[in-house]
Design a protein around this nucleic acid. Sequence first.
DNA 1: GGCATTAACTTGCGTTTTGCAAGTGGAAAA
DNA 2: TTTTCCACTTGCAAAACGCAAGTTAATGCC
Lengths: 137, 137
Amino acid sequence: MKAKNANYNSGCPIAYALGIFGDQWSLLIVRDMAVKGVNTYSELLNGWEGISTNILAQRLKHLEETGIVTKKRDPENWRSFVYELTQKGRDLAPVIAEIVLWSGKYNTADHAMTGTLDKVRMDRKQFEDSIRKGDVP
Amino acid sequence: MKAKNANYNSGCPIAYALGIFGDQWSLLIVRDMAVKGVNTYSELLNGWEGISTNILAQRLKHLEETGIVTKKRDPENWRSFVYELTQKGRDLAPVIAEIVLWSGKYNTADHAMTGTLDKVRMDRKQFEDSIRKGDVP
DNA sequence: GGCATTAACTTGCGTTTTGCAAGTGGAAAA
DNA sequence: TTTTCCACTTGCAAAACGCAAGTTAATGCC
């Protein structure tokens, strides 16, 4: 992982992006933050079933290093940290929207998260703009 | 890897997509096919420096199994195979376009492939449509 | 026909990354 | 003061990756 991807700085835009979120989890983390407004380690860990704690820690660190998220102490709960998407991270909204539309078209076994799909289909600009501005619950 | 991703069939559209191309190479393969019109194993292997032969074989197989590419014998050269994007694969064009735009905005160390970036910026619809129709050199 | 070549992989094997479980450290609630 | 909570680490086995070398089958050339 990290910038060790041979193509990370090959100048190819796709390779650059993959060096940042080209793995199984990073985009899911971004999705949870952007769409669901999740912003602490434990919420991310328990939010969906699957990711293991060491991998989450590793990914968050990488996302922080590559400028997708920031990490600060929660001013209202000094033992907790708050993760937030940067502008760079929120600007992934259109990428996420296109992926959602593509999956909506081809994943016939779709049963959950149709809410998000419908939202994107209905008013994609509003979906993207709300994430871009950080208007999450 | 394959559909063993815990979230592949969780119903989340992002997870579905990541189960198909959520790795370091798959989207680069799609890019080479969609943008550059590359369609044989050896071209893919030598096209950019980096991917190793076993990984390429594995990825192509997975992309075939998940309906992104097809594999047929080249009718004009029977020892060669031709890989082609399916409609499902070509429909990744908007995803690729958004990734290119995002990287174009944030990868300051960009030096190569600006041609593709410019093309997408200039006339994105045309970029997407030409891929969707399979109009590649 | 025989031999070198090309295309597309496969196999071995050492390194790296992942996944699961258990443990750590510090703040704070009881 | 003991327990709980939060955010991680650490250890270790299993899976995936990356490199190099080998395999198979179809040409190409003589």
